[in-house]
């Protein structure tokens, strides 16, 4: 029983992390056609700024993480304004995000007072607080509960924005048919900043939620980003619900393999590839033609 609950909770925890990252990437991809490789890197920057303010400069926790997320949003806006907009092709912008990712990941080692370090302890005020699960010798930490809550909130919020607001309508219009959207008077220049700011902010938020559970470091978010990227495949880089489903499936499979089949070495790491093959076969069986990028060129 305990083992099952463990599997479910840990699976959900990592599923939430993959979901948050994958949603951010899908959001950018479907509206701008850019694969945002820098997603993990932005989180690292935001996390270290928040840690800097909180630990080194004595800011209270919430203003510090707020500032970190704001920096991430601002970085998104600046990146869109000064770099993405200058590049005609989304593929070039994809490469620009790659460059940004390298730059940001390296930044941690460049800022001298960040201690030239792989990781830092960045506790939330809820550190060491748990909720015991009745009937099982197990507990969930407050930090984990906050992570679950945020994923739900964000998913609902994004769904609401896309379905019920004008900005969301514009975003969907642009992603479905940019030419038609332009003819309808929707301006990519207004949609793009919103998307980039939102995505970068989301990456910052992910770090803030993750850092108290793990550590604040400059590599694990990258590793998660790579895995999340394989998850986006499930939703064809378009569907948000399918992406979340893929994320939770992947992490459940990984965790249950590790806990129930610990002797099958390597299986848990093969899941992204195996899922990919299953999705591919499923699409093939449905007669879908070769999966091709349908995203569009911005104006």
């Amino acid at each position: 029983m305990t083992k099952l609950i463990q599997t479910l909770i840990i699976g959900l925890e990592y599923g939430c992390v993959y979901s948050l990252i994958a949603m951010g990437m899908v959001l950018v991809y479907r509206t701008t056609g850019v694969l945002n490789i820098a997603h993990g890197g932005i989180g690292v920057l935001a996390g270290f700024i928040a840690w800097d303010l909180n630990t080194l400069r004595g800011w209270p926790y919430f203003p510090a993480i707020g500032a970190g997320i704001l920096v991430a949003v601002a970085a998104g806006l600046l990146f869109e304004r000064f770099i993405v907009r200058r590049l005609a092709a989304p593929a070039l912008a994809t490469v620009a995000t790659l460059a940004l990712f390298l730059l940001l990941q390296g930044l941690v080692f460049v800022v001298p007072w960040w201690g030239n370090t792989w990781g830092q302890v960045f506790n939330s005020p809820f550190a060491n607080k748990q909720v015991a699960i009745p009937g099982a010798d197990y507990s969930v930490s407050w930090d984990q509960l906050i992570l679950f809550g945020n994923v739900l909130l964000f998913f609902a919020g994004l769904y609401f924005i896309l379905r019920r607001t004008r900005v969301g309508l514009a975003m969907r219009a642009v992603s479905d048919d940019p030419t038609a959207a332009r003819l309808m008077g929707i301006r990519q220049k207004l949609v793009a900043p919103v998307v980039w700011g939102l995505a970068f902010g989301l990456s910052g938020l992910t770090t803030m939620l993750l850092a108290p559970i793990l550590l604040l470091d400059n590599t694990s978010l990258t590793a998660f980003t790579l895995k999340a990227l394989t998850v986006t495949f499930v939703g064809g880089l378009i569907s948000l619900p399918l992406t979340v489903l893929g994320a939770i499936t992947l992490s459940m499979l990984e965790v249950s393999t590790q806990l129930y089949l610990p002797n099958v070495k390597g299986l848990s790491d093969a899941w992204p590839f195996l899922i990919l093959i299953v999705v591919l076969v499923a699409r093939f069986a449905r007669g879908t033609k070769a999966l091709e990028d349908t995203a569009v060129a911005p104006a």
Partner: peptide, 22 residues
């Protein structure tokens, strides 16, 4: 043959990940 562009890249990524980890 079945995937193009970013999708192909993701497939190669998943393959590379599996190769490294296992």
């Amino acid at each position: 043959l079945r995937l193009r562009g970013v999708y192909f890249a993701i497939a190669t990524l998943a393959f590379g990940y599996m190769a490294q980890k296992t």
